[in-house]
Design a protein around this nucleic acid. Structure first.
Lengths: 231, 231
DNA sequence: GCAAAAGTGTTAACTTTACACCCATGT
DNA sequence: ACATGGGTGTAAAGTTAACACTTTTGC
């Protein structure tokens, strides 16, 4: 791996972000509509080239921040896609990132010229995406399905305060299967990771549910001591 | 093949392979000793630049094949490392791959000029590695520890025919904890994924153990039907 | 015959699953 | 008063964990 022979090059690397959100009982993903060729008018994952002087993780955070105005977000590297022909105009290797955000907490900002405004789309029925972004999304979705079973990341998708039913519905939608209400509550409360608030839902036309929040500090402590979350 | 013989590059990305093996009761990793600066004489992961006209997965397979002469090997993408300063001579983003092989099945071949012969080293006590390869190895090791619990990949590290004790020892070494013999056997046999052979160990100075082999076909079938391996 | 590892079963503790009714609130 | 979702416990089935002695083989 000697560099001496390498042409000096700015990047043919990009990052693409798969940003999941959860709203109105549906899993959503943040997409832009491309304003330029190739794939003009197609939906695409928000992504951008990596600067010469920035780490990939930084690039992912920057791109996401440029999109959503937000920084304090669950984010991790997902997978790198580098098939020779994945980009019609030349070779671009892209490092995909995976991120979970609270939809309500963010306002979506206008983007640079290459894209129209970012918007939320339901993952369930989606038109074809640009490039190999369909494939990237599938990988991300599988990661989400896997990860949510053994890490408490579901909370990243819910508002700060949520009801147990909202949490259950989130799991049902992501795992694509129904869950028994009593068993779910028993299990999730048994971890001792939820703080029961002195507060209830408002303006609902049925018995108002208690609100909870996730005790992240406690989770971090337990994790250090070898505790493992598993649904 | 020397690096100077490589086709012209327009990209500074490489693949690095973390190749695990298991031998004499120890988890091992395949490393080369670098013959050139930077990090001359350091141990390093086998890696190489990705050709312009090959997919990353292909590159990883090629590099591994150039090293070991072997192709039919468990291999998956691990993680991409791209910190600005990870390579002292410029920016190189590297896609790390993770591979498990049967040590005995392969003869290690001489390499290109930039490296001396590849050799197996015990993962347990290792001198410092070149570049950020220590970090890559750690990530790979964690992946292995995780993955072995819910996918039957341990068999990739054992000879075709193995005893239950060898299998158990493999798990104990990788998971770094003792396992109860009777419970282990009960569990592992309960999957119905092992074929009991009409054959026993030879030349051991104690009762010879039965040999088994992994029933990969059956695993693939079961997997399609939603079966999940979990130790 | 002894050293070394192979092979084998039972029980108690715990976890998971299945399942149905009353409660609180808004209209 | 009714429609909507909130909230709650128990028992049976299944899984995991703890545990010790006999067998086979080579020397």
């Amino acid at each position: 791996m000697e560099l001496n022979d390498l042409p000096k090059l700015h990047s043919d690397f990009s990052v693409d972000c798969v940003v999941f959100g959860f709203d109105k009982g549906e899993l959503r993903i943040l997409l832009i509509e491309r304003a330029e060729e190739p794939f003009k008018d197609f939906l695409a994952l928000p992504g951008n080239l990596v600067y010469d002087n920035e780490n990939i993780d930084q690039a992912a955070n920057r791109v996401l921040s440029e999109l959503t105005g937000l920084n304090d977000v669950y984010m991790e590297q997902l997978y790198t896609f580098g098939d020779v022909n994945r980009h019609p105009q030349g070779r671009v290797i892209t490092v995909a990132y995976f991120s979970l955000i609270k939809v309500k907490k963010h306002t979506l900002n206008p983007l640079s010229a290459y894209a129209k405004k970012a918007q939320w789309f339901s993952v369930a029925d989606l038109q074809p995406l640009a490039f190999d972004h369909q494939q990237i999304l599938e990988k991300a979705y599988k990661r989400l399905q896997n990860k949510i079973r053994y890490q408490p990341i579901g909370f990243e998708l819910l508002p700060e305060k949520f009801t147990l039913s909202q949490l259950q519905q989130l799991y049902e939608v992501i795992l694509e299967k129904p869950i028994d209400k009593r068993n779910f509550r028993k299990k999730i409360l048994s971890f001792g990771l939820l703080i029961e608030l002195d507060e209830k839902q408002k303006n609902v036309s049925h018995r108002a549910a208690k609100l909870y929040k996730f005790n992240k500090t406690r989770y971090n402590n337990l994790k250090k001591m070898g505790f493992s979350f598993e649904l």
